[in-house]
C-alpha cells in the first residue's frame, strides 16, 4: 500500500500537527512514513500545507506532484491546490468554509462540515481532527485508535485534557467518512 496525502489550510487550523499525527500513527502501525511541510511566515492565518507518505515500501520522494488524497480546510487552499489531486483521487473538503466545489471532474469529493461539528463538540480547535477522522473513516487506511494514540504522544502533557474532545472529533469525522462509502466500495 502507498498513501499520499496532502493537507492544506490556514495557519492555526492544525494542518501541521494533524499531518504529523497521521504520519506518526503510520509509523506506530509499522509502516514507512514521511511528513514534509511548507508554510508561510505568519504565526496565524497564512497558507499552510504538508504532504504525508505512508507506505509498506520505500517512501522515495516525500514530495507528491499529484497526491491521491487532499484534505483541504479553507477556500484559498481549495482553490489553489484541489486541481492538483490525482485523477480518480479523493478530495476531503471543509464545507463549513468552502462553498464552490473545486478540483476537476475525475475525482471524488467528501464534504465535511468540520467547523460546525467542532463547535457542537465544544472545542473549535478540533477542526483538523474532524477532517482527518473523515478521511480515516472513508479509507480505513489508519485506525481512529491509532491516530488518537499518536496525538497523545505528540501533544505536550499540559494539553492532554483536550484529548476527549479530540477523540470525539475524530469519531464524528469517521462516522461521516464511513457513511460516505459507496456500497461495495
Amino acid at each position: 500500500m502507498r498513501e499520499e496525502i496532502f493537507l492544506g489550510g490556514l495557519g492555526g487550523q492544525g494542518v501541521l500537527l494533524g499531518g504529523q499525527m497521521m504520519a506518526r500513527a503510520g509509523m506506530d502501525a509499522g509502516l514507512n512514513v514521511s511528513w514534509f511541510p511548507i508554510y508561510s511566515p505568519e504565526v496565524r492565518g497564512g497558507s499552510t500545507t504538508c504532504t504525508i507518505v505512508i507506505t509498506d515500501g520505500r517512501v522515495g520522494s516525500p514530495i507528491c506532484e499529484r497526491p491521491e488524497t487532499m484534505i483541504l480546510m479553507d477556500p484559498v487552499a481549495a482553490n489553489t491546490f484541489a486541481p492538483q489531486v490525482a485523477e480518480g483521487g479523493l478530495l476531503v473538503l471543509n464545507s463549513s468554509m468552502i462553498e464552490q466545489p473545486p478540483g476537476h471532474e475525475d475525482c471524488e469529493t467528501l464534504w465535511v462540515p468540520a467547523n460546525d461539528i467542532a463547535v457542537e463538540i465544544g472545542n473549535e480547535r478540533t477542526v483538523n481532527m474532524v477532517m482527518i477522522g473523515a478521511w480515516a473513516g472513508r479509507t480505513s487506511a489508519l485506525s481512529i485508535e491509532g491516530i488518537a494514540e499518536a496525538l497523545q504522544h505528540m501533544l505536550p502533557e499540559r494539553h492532554h485534557k483536550h484529548m476527549p474532545a479530540n477523540i470525539a472529533a475524530l469519531e464524528r469525522g469517521a462516522e461521516i467518512g464511513a457513511e460516505s462509502r459507496q456500497p461495495g466500495g
Partner: peptide, 9 residues
C-alpha cells in the same frame, strides 16, 4: 531545507 524540516522515523 527539505531534509532539515521534514519528519521521519
Amino acid at each position: 531545507a527539505i531534509l532539515a524540516n521534514m519528519m521521519e522515523p
